[in-house]
C-alpha cells in the first residue's frame, strides 16, 4: 500500500458489499479519485489525506480563516497601490522612460495584439483583484459570525475557479528576467509600485498555503446546521 501513514485519515470503511453504512451527510469524496470517506473532525493542526490517492483533504488551523481575511485585505490594498504608482524607470545616456503596471499591459495595444493587452491586464491586475475581492466576500461572514448564504458560497467558488488564472507572481518573475536583460545597457530605478507588487506576491503565496478549502466549504455550508 502506498498510502501515507504518518497522518490521520478521515476515511474508514464506509460500505460493505456495496451497502452504505453511513448517511449521505457524513460522507465526503476525494476530489481527485472519487473515493468515499467518513467525515470526521480532525484535531487542530493535523492534516488528513485520501486513503487511496494520498491527496490532502483537510488541513485544520483554528486561526487560518482570520489570517486569510487579513492577508486578502492587505493584498487588495497593495494591488491598488501597485497600479496607481510608478513601477519602473529606465535611463540610457540622459534619456529616461518610466512605466506603470498598466503601461506594461499597454505594450500590447497595437492592433494585432490588442486582445493580448486585455488578457495580460486580466492575468496580472483584474483577475487577482477579483479573486481577492471574492475571498474577502466569502470569509467575511465566517469571521464576523454571521450566517453565510448562497452569495458567499458562489464567491468562494469564483475564487477557486480564478486561482490558476491570476498570475501576479509569474509577472514579477517576468519583470526580474526583463531587468536582467536591460541591466547592462541602462540604469533602472524602482518605483513604489514595484515594492507593493513584490510584497503582494509574497502575501498571496502565504494566503494560498494557509487556506484549507475543505474547512472553508464546511464552514460556509449552512444546510446541515
Amino acid at each position: 500500500m502506498e498510502t501515507r501513514q504518518q497522518t490521520p485519515y478521515i476515511g474508514i470503511t464506509v460500505a460493505i458489499g456495496g451497502q452504505l453504512m453511513l448517511p449521505l451527510e457524513n460522507l465526503v469524496a476525494c476530489p481527485q479519485c472519487d473515493t468515499l470517506h467518513a467525515q470526521t473532525d480532525v484535531p487542530d493542526g493535523a492534516k488528513a489525506h485520501c486513503m487511496r490517492c494520498g491527496a490532502a483533504m483537510v488541513e485544520t488551523r483554528s486561526t487560518a480563516i482570520t489570517n486569510v481575511l487579513s492577508l486578502a485585505l492587505t493584498s487588495f490594498v497593495l494591488m491598488i497601490a501597485a497600479v496607481s504608482f510608478p513601477f519602473l524607470d529606465l535611463s540610457i545616456g540622459g534619456q529616461t522612460n518610466g512605466t506603470s503596471v498598466l503601461g506594461a499591459v499597454m505594450a500590447f495595444s497595437d492592433t494585432f495584439s490588442l486582445p493580448l493587452a486585455f488578457a495580460v491586464a486580466g492575468f496580472i491586475v483584474f483577475l487577482p483583484l477579483l479573486r481577492l475581492g471574492a475571498i474577502i466576500a466569502a470569509v467575511l461572514p465566517l469571521v464576523t459570525h454571521r450566517t453565510p448564504g448562497r452569495f458567499h458560497r458562489h464567491a468562494f467558488g469564483l475564487a477557486e475557479t480564478l486561482r490558476p488564472w491570476s498570475m501576479a507572481e509569474i509577472f514579477i518573475v517576468g519583470v526580474s528576467v526583463a531587468l536582467v536583460k536591460v541591466a547592462g545597457l541602462a540604469t533602472i530605478s524602482f518605483g513604489p509600485a514595484f515594492w507593493a507588487f513584490t510584497l503582494l506576491v509574497i502575501l498571496t503565496f502565504f494566503q494560498d498555503t494557509l487556506i484549507c478549502r475543505y474547512s472553508v466549504w464546511r464552514a460556509l455550508d449552512t444546510s446541515r446546521a
Partner: peptide, 13 residues
C-alpha cells in the same frame, strides 16, 4: 509574455 510586456513598455527611447 510578461518579459516582452515589460521590455516593450520600458524601452521606448
Amino acid at each position: 509574455v510578461f518579459v516582452v510586456a515589460i521590455l516593450s513598455a520600458l524601452v521606448q527611447l
